[in-house]
Design a protein around this nucleic acid. Structure first.
Length: 279
DNA sequence: GCCAACGTTGGC
DNA sequence: GCCAACGTTGGC
């Protein structure tokens, strides 16, 4: 039934409890497994939204644990319902209510995702970063089975090169590598946490941005949440594809991610899919 | 339209 | 909890 080839995506959720407006937004692989199918609500980022609108039933999803002690891919899922308006944006009691949208012209969308399986071996981000930092395309012996193409695929993952988008496109090669890693494991004896074995990681540039300038005292007031909600319009901006990253402050990227989520029914526990919510 | 400030994401 | 990365807002 799909009129086009299956596509692959990576979607993040936060497995640790975090209370937002009185509701715990945590959504771990355990929660996902229990829920079976869940609406991916709360995404309030244009690029992430646009990607969800490209999803078709049957597309595969890498379920990622974000903003936690041990981030990484915890399971597999698939799109079970195409994008439709995210009704939580109209729920004024909801943490991610967006007063700027109206039902006649939905701005935010969500898809339904169905849990498929857990990763037999949790695939930590640290492993992916380690692979991405390898000097060549030769995988270490422990995971020789991923092959050179596998290493190349990981090196190109947005999860590694970009990071912040909570809904990302993933190549078929990448999907295969993650699936293999999750199935076979083998890196248990390696140590690449933090400084990781090769010390790779992206070293950080140090001079970078000047954002540091700001650190003022912000009162963390609770800001209204409206701010980020976006105002851009929906028009689809979609595509923006790439842009350059200018140096200095003005970087420009394009989209971003962000989503959060919320709850579904009053009875149900709210689940968060996205990573970070705003405070 | 540019760019500085700001607020958030999210790894560590 | 810290802070780097970066999207977004808003002044000009």
């Amino acid at each position: 039934m799909q009129s086009h080839p299956t596509r692959y995506w990576l979607m993040k959720a936060e497995p640790d409890s975090r209370v937002v407006k009185g509701k715990d937004v945590k959504f771990s692989v355990d929660d996902f497994e229990s829920a079976g199918t869940t609406p991916w609500e709360g995404v309030r980022n244009f690029e992430a939204r646009n990607l969800m609108r490209e999803m078709a039933v049957g597309d595969k999803i890498l379920f990622y644990h974000s903003n936690c002690k041990n981030p990484g891919i915890a399971g597999f899922a698939e799109v079970s319902k195409e994008a439709y308006p995210d009704y939580t944006a109209w729920d004024s009691s909801h943490p991610y209510f967006d007063a700027k949208t109206d039902k006649d012209k939905p701005k935010w969308f969500m898809v339904d995702a169905a849990f498929v399986s857990r990763a037999r071996h949790f695939v930590p981000l640290s492993l992916l970063r380690f692979i991405a930092g390898l000097p060549s395309s030769d995988p270490p012996t422990e995971i020789a089975y991923v092959g050179e193409n596998g290493v190349k695929a990981v090196k190109a993952m947005q999860l590694v090169t970009r990071g912040r988008l909570s809904v990302q496109r993933v190549t078929e090669e990448c999907w295969s590598v993650i699936e293999l890693l999750a199935e076979k494991g083998g890196w248990e004896s390696m140590s690449f946490t933090k400084t990781n074995a090769a010390g790779i990681r992206q070293a950080k540039p140090k001079a970078g941005r000047k954002t540091l300038t700001r650190k003022i005292e912000v009162d963390e007031a609770t800001a209204d949440s409206h701010k980020a909600s976006g105002l851009q319009d929906e028009g689809d901006a979609g595509a923006e594809a790439k842009q350059e990253v200018t140096s200095g402050r003005g970087r420009k990227r394009k989209a971003s991610d962000v989503h959060q989520e919320q709850l579904g029914d009053p009875d149900q526990v709210p689940r968060r899919k996205s990573t970070r919510t705003k405070k």
